[in-house]
């Protein structure tokens, strides 16, 4: 194997390694996952009982009632 060929292989291996290193969550700035059908992002804030009560109350307007 001549010297040029070794240099090309080494350069290719280096490029591959650096490419794979760029596949982390922090570097992509987003959650990464290979498992299917599961949401891996941040979870939503849950609505409190008070918020749900207000929403139910506002449904009365749609039924023809008043606020």
């Amino acid at each position: 194997m001549n010297k040029t060929k070794k240099i090309v292989i080494a350069a290719f291996a280096l490029a591959l390694a650096s490419g794979l290193a760029g596949c982390r969550d922090e570097e992509q700035n987003r959650p990464l996952s290979t498992s299917k059908s599961t949401y891996h992002g941040p979870s939503d804030d849950k609505l409190s009982e008070q918020q749900l009560r207000e929403i139910r109350h506002r449904m009365n307007i749609q039924a023809g009632g008043q606020i």
Partner: peptide, 18 residues
């Protein structure tokens, strides 16, 4: 890429970052 999720109230939301 599984961007969708449902809230406790059954609202289908999605994550634009994903």
């Amino acid at each position: 890429v599984d961007v969708f999720y449902q809230t406790d109230q059954g609202v289908v939301l999605h994550n634009k970052d994903l």
